[in-house]
Each structure stands twice: as C-alpha cells, then as structure tokens.
Amino acid sequence: MTEPLALRSEAETLASPLPALLAEAEHLATAVLLGEHGRRRAGVGDTFWQYRPAQPYDEARSIDWRRSARSDSNFVQDKEWQIAQSIILWVDQAASMSFHSDDNLPTKGQRARTLGMATAILLIRGGERVGLTGLRLPPRSGEAQLMQMAQLLSTQDDADYGAPEAQGMLPHSRALFISDFMGDMAPVEAALLRAADRGVRGALLQVLDPQEEAFPFDGRTIFESMSGTLSHETLKAGDLKTRYLDRLAERKDRLAHLARTTGWQFSTHHTGESAAAALLWLYGALERRV
C-alpha cells in the first residue's frame, strides 16, 4: 500500500512546475464573472437557484429543513454557479495496475495515482472542486480534500481489471479517467455514454508498461493476471506477438473513437516516459473547450 503522505508529496513535486490549472468547460468563460452577476447554474454563489432532492453525499447542514418538512423527502438549495467548476476523477485501483516489468519503473498504479493527485492539486490550486467517482468523495476544494483523496487512492481493489463509474458526476462538469483499460470495454463505454448524456466532458488517459507495448516474449511462457486468477501457458509465445499487438491497436482505436464520439480527449502514456509530459497533456485536455 502506498503511504498517503508519500503519494501526496510525489504528486506535489510533479505539479509544482505548472501554473494553476483552471479546468475550463464550454460554459466557463461566460460563467466567471465579477461581482454578484452569477450564472443560472448550481454552485457556490449566494443567490438561490433551485431546490433538488438531497443526495447521500450532501451534508446535513446543507438540507433546507423548512422545504423538506412539506414533503417526505429532504431537499437542498442549489446556489448560482459563479466560479467553481466540478471535476470528478476515476483512477483505476484494480490488480492489473500493480504490474511493472522492471524494478526501475513505477507500477502502472503508482503512475496513475501520482498523475491523478497532481491533476487534483492543480485544479484545487486553480479554485476548482475535485472529487472521486462513485460518490466516494464528493467534489470539494481545499487541502483537506487532497488528503482524503490521497488516502482513498492509496488502496487497491481485488478485481483483476477496473471499471469506471459515472455515478456522482454533476451535469456539465469535467471528468478524468486514468486506467490501463485492459479489461472489459463495455463498462467504459457505458460510463462515457452516461457522462455524455449529462454534458460531462473530460479525458481518458491509458497508462501502460513498456513491456505491454513491445511484447518481448518467445518460447515457453506462462502469462498470469496480477491477482493470479487467470493463467495461460504457451510453448510458442512469439507466435502470439502479432495477434496481441493487433488487438492492442484495436483497443486503442476503440478508445480513441469512443472519446471522439462523446467529446472527450484520449491519450496513451507509458510508465517509462516522463510523468510531467503526461501531466502537461492532461493540463491541455482538461483546459480545452469542446
């Protein structure tokens, strides 16, 4: 398990050379206004916008008890959206992310967590609210939020491969999914289509180990999943190389097409490459208006 303080320190170091990131959505330019001129969107302004049913992540103090008393449900007052933009992160914590082919390389999970945290640091420094998918950590700002995020991202799931969640995404917000995307594609497609239906735009970053791109195997080889639940033995691993690389290329094309279809951005990052370069790409991808 990665220590939260170590993860936070590594992410801070990676984020420090970059200016504060303002994750601009399509409407952000007109929403950032001076004075009391808010935009009719939910957010952090002082002017009432609408009532909505309370969600599990809403704090008790945010509930309007007078309005709730007139119904069997609890209601929250949404305020006018003025500055803060909500960004939801999903960082794959499945067993497959614990792979690395060389002790001098980070695991895919280590690189993914560092990039996710560094992105969160830049966003929060820019005045944004950042959270995690699946209602685990609703979007908020501040140093305490970063610490909670580091703690949650320091754990590992038992599943072989991860699947993103669209639950908890606010309409017209931004999102970032970081994974190797080596598992079933159906949950990825479902999450992105659900996000697109809510007007959510964002970025997919695929993190791979260099060995997963090169497939340097030959002769008798045993391939096992990181959890040990899946295993395949072959006497002629070299014969699988072309088929494997073709399927990997097809998967990348599928991810790229899905991103284009839903208005997201897609890129692949290798753990042998500069983490700062990947963070720069995320900077541009989340800042870009689509």
Rank of each mutant, 00 (worst) to 15 (best):
Q55A: 14
L205M: 11
G284M: 00
G45C: 09
L258S: 02
A118G: 08
I222G: 00
T119P: 04
K108H: 02
P187T: 04
Q85C: 06
L22P: 06
M149V: 14
I178Q: 04
G126C: 07
T133N: 06
S274P: 08
R288C: 08
T2I: 13
D160A: 15
G162F: 03
R136T: 14
S96F: 05
E24L: 15
P164N: 01
Y161E: 13
A285N: 02
R113V: 09
A15R: 01
R243W: 09
S225N: 01
A195I: 06
A159S: 14
G126R: 08
L192K: 03
I83P: 00
E80Y: 12
G38V: 13
R198I: 00
R66P: 00
D218N: 11
A42S: 12
R125G: 14
L34T: 13
S274Q: 11
F177P: 00
L7D: 09
Y161M: 07
E128T: 04
T221A: 03
R201S: 10
T229K: 12
P187W: 02
L105G: 03
A150V: 13
S98L: 15
R125Q: 13
F266D: 01
L193E: 15
A95I: 05
S179H: 05
L135I: 01
Q167E: 13
L193S: 04
R8H: 14
W49M: 11
L132P: 09
S267Y: 06
G272D: 15
K236H: 13
G116R: 04
E128F: 05
T221E: 11
T234S: 09
Q50N: 03
A11W: 00
R67T: 00
F215H: 07
M1F: 07
T47S: 13
T229D: 11
Q93D: 05
R243Q: 08
Q151T: 15
E189I: 11
A6L: 09
G126F: 02
G116M: 01
L115P: 02
L282D: 06
R247K: 12
R67I: 01
K108E: 08
W49A: 13
R194A: 12
E36P: 04
A237L: 07
R41C: 03
A11Q: 04
A195W: 05
H172G: 03
E36D: 14
R289M: 10
M226E: 10
K108C: 08
L123P: 01
L89K: 02
G168L: 12
T261L: 12
Q82L: 15
A94R: 09
L208F: 05
A94K: 04
R251V: 03
K79A: 12
H232C: 12
L280M: 12
T242D: 09
M169A: 13
E250N: 15
A163R: 12
G35F: 13
A275R: 03
R111W: 00
H270Q: 15
L132R: 01
S98K: 07
D180K: 01
A20V: 10
R247W: 06
I83N: 09
N104V: 05
D218K: 01
R260K: 09
M226L: 14
V44I: 10
A259Q: 01
D92A: 01
A69I: 06
R70W: 07
R247E: 08
Q55D: 06
A6Y: 05
W264G: 00
H257M: 09
L258I: 01
E287S: 15
T268R: 01
P210T: 06
